[in-house]
Design a protein around this nucleic acid. Structure first.
Length: 767
DNA sequence: TTAGGGTTAG
């Protein structure tokens, strides 16, 4: 309402000024025939343009309809429009209503010629109307650049509106250089935020990053008049962060700096862009930078939302920066950013990952309202439940997982889904409760929860791990008839299972079957088969599968080469092993310590300590450090050659000088050898040393010592070790039983043997 | 939020 009144008031005053100018004697047009016409204008009723403008416009337009010769010969039109008025309003309105821009430009020239001393600002405004008219014409794309040229020729500066009109129009046709030229022509004082935003947007869209940043940079200068606004930030960030993985030619550090610079001007990227920035930085391993920028933005008062914090929490978790995770949670509290269901999901998942399920359950209770006064109630969703159920199943607490399903059902809108069942089936299957797993599978089908290929694979894996390999194959076939097809993963599980029971023929058959069924094998299937065949000594078949893997585009990695090299070494085919090493070199696959250890072991075992030593030297030269396995291979070979003293010497050197941590296997090698050499004292000394160093003996250690003790009939010592074995929950195997049964029966100590075995029964029941 | 494999010394 107020605007309306003001508009009319201005119109009325300009109208009177207009009349006054017309009547002024010094105005050449005042004496012309137009006087009568001009005065009649005052009697007109109000119009949107001002009192009486309508009839003036009508008359002018009528006149302009006639041929140019007619109106250009007379001053009548000039009088009518009266450009000497400080208000260009009337001329602008007339121009806007002309039939074409070419007519408009003729009128413009006519008026300009009639009043050469006119204010350029006034002329620029009229010219703006010409541009407006041209922009609506079908051939605007050619006309507008021509008009820009005309304005330049006539030294006519563009108004800010002309410039925005032109850039906006040029943007539609991706006329980047034309837009840039318009901007550069524009009076620097007129280059406002709006026109800069338009131009930056266009430049970024056309990939002219450098030019865009130049325009932007001027806005970010402290002395600059035009500052960035929210739209600037939106334009810049939507362009820079549009692509998910790459940030184009602009470095991430520059983007971070830009974000912070914007922050200094009180504008910052919105939550979506901040989140993308954090995610992008984290993905490139720059978690520390992501942490810095989020904190800085928070301190600047930017609108940081929970989603951005979640992105950083995920990154920190991934990089094991747990202290920072806590600090971020604290900061969120301080900034009053409420955690949401995703935040709790991250925390619960984190605890579960490290098998701290009780901690996860605590977080879960806290999100449910908990006991604490500052607890925040956030409704858990199916993902939260599934994460917890999976966590419980992974630590063997699958029954509790089932309990959570009931709790989940009691909550509205939260029913168990396929993932829920997959986790539970996995839990029971791994625990060997295959029947229970099948029961759950039936239950989910009954409830209308569709099983997927993960359900199938989880169940199949459980079956295979618990000796039901044939049943697993049948189950896969059965499911296929119901439309639940297996994938490469399914075949990997089955192939691995058959390789583990030394049935490589069946493994190969399954591989052919998967190809026949159109299921494409992936790298893992190939590697599994290569390993299985190598372990079975079928090196030709393993090599052939390796060739097929390479043909399929799955190059062998170092582990795969090691598998094959190990296989050939076991068969004494060192030439074949060397061929593979040559191939590795050619393909740029660097041998690792396992490769070297395999070769060192091979040569040591064959008594070629010299060659083994040369390889060891090569190993250290390539920057690899000899490991406990390297020493183990050499020590073992010395032992096999009856040089136990030499082996002990190397072992001591390994512990003292090289400071390589020992393990059970290396102690077993030495203890076994010492016992065989009847040096039981030294063997028992090493066992004590193991105890001191916290290296746990296993059944192999005990078997070696029992054998030695038996030879020397050191019965009391054997009883002590039998008790210790029970204490350590180290289960005897058939070798232990063979040694002890024979020995203890012979010396009439079968009661001790019975107690020994009972110790395990008690332990199993208490466990 | 859920599923698979492989290497070296005893």
């Amino acid at each position: 309402m107020n605007t309306m009144i003001r508009f009319r008031a201005i119109s009325a005053s300009s109208q009177s000024k207009f009349l006054f100018l017309l009547l002024r004697p010094k105005n050449p047009m005042a004496n012309s025939s137009s006087l009568g016409l001009c005065t009649t204008a005052t009697s007109q009723s109000p119009s949107p343009y001002g009192y009486g403008d309508d009839s003036l416009i009508t008359e002018a337009l009528q006149l302009l309809q006639s041929s140019q010769d007619e109106w250009s010969k007379t001053d009548h039109l000039r009088c009518l429009i009266s450009l000497d008025s400080s208000s260009p309003r009337l001329a602008i309105h007339i121009t806007r209503r002309l039939s074409s821009s070419s007519l408009a430009i003729r009128l413009f020239d006519y008026l300009h010629e009639g009043s050469p001393s006119l204010d350029t600002a006034l002329l620029s405004s009229i010219f703006q109307a010409v541009l407006e008219l041209a922009s609506r014409e079908p051939d605007a794309q050619t006309k507008l650049p021509e008009l820009v040229k005309i304005s330049k020729e006539r030294n006519l500066p563009l108004t800010i509106n002309s410039a925005t009109l032109l850039i906006r129009y040029f943007r539609r046709f991706n006329m980047v250089d034309e837009s840039l030229a318009v901007f550069n022509e524009l009076d620097p004082f007129l280059r406002n935020t709006h026109v800069r935003n338009l131009l930056i947007d266009l430049l970024l869209q056309s990939g002219r990053l450098h030019d865009a940043l130049h325009v932007l940079d001027e806005m970010l200068q402290p002395e600059g008049e035009w500052k960035p606004n929210e739209i600037t930030v939106e334009i810049v960030f939507s362009s820079l962060l549009r692509r998910e993985r790459s940030w184009g030619s602009m470095g991430e550090e520059e983007i971070v700096e830009l974000a912070l610079k914007f922050g200094e001007y009180g504008v910052s990227p919105n939550s979506v862009w901040i989140t993308k920035l954090i995610t992008g930085l984290s993905r490139n391993g720059k978690t520390a930078r992501a942490w810095d920028i989020l904190n800085e933005l928070m301190n600047m008062g930017a609108a940081v939302e929970v989603a951005s914090c979640n992105a950083l929490l995920i990154a920190l978790e991934r990089h094991s920066e747990f202290k920072k995770m806590n600090a971020l949670m604290e900061k969120m509290k301080e900034m009053d950013i409420q955690p949401n269901v995703v935040t709790f999901g991250i925390l619960i998942n984190h605890s579960c990952k490290y098998r701290r399920v009780d901690e996860a359950l605590e977080v879960f209770e806290r999100m449910n309202g908990g006991k604490e006064s500052d607890a925040i109630a956030v409704q858990p969703d199916v993902i939260i439940y599934n994460t917890l159920i999976d966590g419980l199943c992974k630590v063997g607490r699958q029954e509790e997982g089932l309990g959570l399903v009931e709790r989940m059902r009691s909550q509205t809108g939260c029913a168990p889904n396929t993932v829920t069942y997959n986790c539970l089936i996995g839990g029971f299957a791994k625990a060997g409760e295959i029947d229970k797993a099948h029961e759950l599978f039936d239950k989910m089908n009954k409830e209308g929860v569709p099983p997927n290929v993960i359900t199938l694979n989880t169940l199949v894996d459980g079956m295979c791990r618990h000796g039901r390999v044939t049943a697993a194959v049948n189950f896969v076939n059965e499911m296929q008839s119901f439309g639940l097809k297996g994938n490469a993963n399914t075949y990997t599980v089955l192939i691995n299972a058959f390789c583990n029971v030394n049935n490589t023929a069946k493994a190969l058959e399954l591989f052919d079957q998967m190809l026949a069924k159109g299921c494409p094998p992936d790298a893992i299937v190939y590697y599994t088969l290569i390993s299985g065949l190598s372990r079975a000594g079928r090196l030709d078949d393993a090599s052939s599968i390796a060739s097929r893997a390479k043909e399929a585009g799955y190059g062998l990695d170092v582990v795969c080469y090691n598998t094959l090299i190990g296989g050939f070494c076991r068969q004494n085919k060192i030439d074949k092993a060397y061929e593979l090493i040559k191939e590795m070199e050619e393909l740029g696959v660097k041998p690792d310590s396992v490769t070297y250890n395999t070769l060192i072991s091979f040569f040591s075992k064959n008594g070629s300590f010299k060659t083994a030593h040369i390889i060891l030297k090569k190993m250290t030269k390539s920057g690899l450090v000899p490991t406990v396995v390297t020493y183990g291979a050499i020590i073992h070979s010395y032992c096999l050659n009856g040089k136990v003293d030499e082996a002990m010497k190397i072992f001591k050197e390994m512990c003292s000088a090289s400071k390589v941590p020992t393990n059970t296997v290396i102690y077993n090698i030495l203890i076994d050898s010492l016992c065989k050499n009847n040096d039981i004292e030294q063997a028992l000394f090493l066992m004590d040393e193991m105890r001191c160093k916290g290296v746990r003996p296993n059944v192999t250690t005990y078997n070696a010592v029992f054998k030695g003790l038996k030879e020397n009939n050191l019965l009391e010592k054997a009883f002590v070790l039998m008790d210790r074995m029970i204490e350590q929950a180290c289960c005897p195997d058939y070798i232990t039983m063979e040694i002890l049964t024979e020995w203890l029966s012979l010396v009439g100590e079968t009661d001790k043997l019975r107690d020994f075995l009972q110790g395990y029964q008690i332990q199993t029941s208490t466990a």
